[in-house]
Design a protein around this nucleic acid. Structure first.
Lengths: 257, 257
DNA sequence: CAAGTCTGTTTCATATAATGGAACAATTGG
DNA sequence: CCAATTGTTCCATTATATGAAACAGACTTG
């Protein structure tokens, strides 16, 4: 469809550079993306001028610091993230374990913000990281409360651990349970040893985020899953209260199709 | 000059969206950038596919969450951050208070990394947070050692506390003092109760970061500002030694702005 | 120390691919 | 309800990105 290929290639370069652990040269990138060297070089030169990529002393290219500015700017203007920030820290401090906020961005579930726990062994999600829908607590909430915004597709459910739900029937049962009781859990379904309890953050009945506590299974059990869920729900309530001032009035009638 | 105009325009859009406080429509953006509507629309559609921009419920455009992922990824591989990490922790452990690293990213001063102190009352900056230039110790260092990389503008100096420098004359005096003695301080000028001592991290004579200790005013006084500065300078020296890298030479004339 | 093989960079003819005016459709607002 | 926006699509035109090949540094290898 109508996508500007030049821009597309530039974006490919940004992601390629960001994905690779080390600075990469023009030749390597051109091979990886299947583009002519000259082309890659000009794209990089353009991005270089704008600070989206940089060069190291060996003239190899790496992601630019302008990306940091753009990314962090973006983080700060997210209304849900802003409203949740204080609650994340309060809950993490009180429970001593990592609490994070996830949300749907572009059909994918991404980590929006986090407040890490204090333990030596603690979950340390990466902000911006995308997490699987079918093997996480927040994913089940997304499937339960915003099924039309996510693209699970009829695809096969990849098995990460022994407890991953690999059949759609099993997953559906989990999702229904989450919808019923208002919170979801993940018992080492994605990463061995890691358990999560998550609650939804709603605005006008729509899911705008999910608040989750992630910790070693033993730690969560000693806190208590229900107690964790209750504590998170209180935080979610306060976040929701802070979100009720949104959108400059919409007059659109909800009536009819 | 050999810059791909299509990519350039796409980058313009990203910065324009990031700069404006609210989501913007195609028409507004086309006016601001002086590009035809159709063109802006296609550029946005391309960026939308890749998650670099998003649309709100009114179809207006805003920066996309993929920028967060790219930006955060970039933060982690920052050479200055990598070189400083160990020193941050060593200094924080030795002095018992929070030590953090700040740097200029896209004309703004942002927190790159931190090692928190052990006290019950301790500074806990957020990584990625941007801090004001005129009311912080690290900001004064930026103004003193990299005046052309920061955009203070002739703007008014917002007053945060009773001791904030609100006149350019007063600020200039502070900046000159910092340049002379090689370290800067902040005496509750930004946040009541919080004092900071900061030293520059230089590479090839250019400021690449600032190392700062942040603590309650009483704590800093009992450690001693000069002693703190001396300790931080030792750390900065070691960081600088780890950064000995010639800057890449550019053959073509460089266009500013 | 020199030849060879990698890099990154520049050139230039060519045709593709982005352009932008204008028509269209879907909103919003009065 | 109509008018004035907005976002989106269409399409001819040519400006623009393309990519093969030549060039120039840097680094390794014999």
């Amino acid at each position: 469809m109508g996508a500007l290929s030049t821009v597309d290639h530039a974006v490919d370069l940004l992601f390629a550079l960001s994905a690779s652990a080390e600075p990469e040269g023009v030749t390597a990138l051109s091979r990886r993306l299947g583009l002519p060297k000259a082309n890659v070089h000009r794209l990089l030169a353009t991005l270089l001028q704008r600070g989206l990529v940089e060069q190291d002393e060996r003239r190899r290219y790496l992601p630019g610091s302008a990306l940091v500015a753009l990314g962090l700017q973006r983080l700060d203007r997210d209304p849900v993230t802003a409203a949740a920030r204080g609650e994340l820290e309060a809950a993490a401090a009180e429970l001593g374990e990592t609490v994070f906020l996830a949300g749907l961005r572009g059909g994918q579930l991404v980590v929006l913000d986090k407040a890490e726990g204090s333990g030596f062994l603690r979950a340390a999600p990466r902000i911006g990281e995308t997490v699987p829908l079918h093997a996480t607590a927040v994913g089940k909430l997304a499937l339960a409360f915003a099924p039309d915004e996510v693209a699970l597709g009829g695809a096969e459910l990849r098995s990460f651990t022994a407890t991953t739900a690999t059949s759609h029937a099993a997953l559906d049962a989990e999702v229904r349970r989450a919808a019923l009781r208002g919170w979801a859990e993940n018992r080492e379904e994605w990463i061995a040893g890691l358990s999560v309890v998550a609650v939804p953050v709603l605005r006008a009945g729509r899911l705008v985020g999910a608040l989750a506590l992630a910790a070693a299974t033993g730690r969560i059990e000693s806190i208590g899953r229900l107690r964790t869920a209750t504590r998170l729900q209180a935080a979610a309530k306060r976040i929701e209260a802070r979100l009720v001032t949104p959108l400059p009035r919409t007059r659109s009638a909800e009536a009819g199709a």
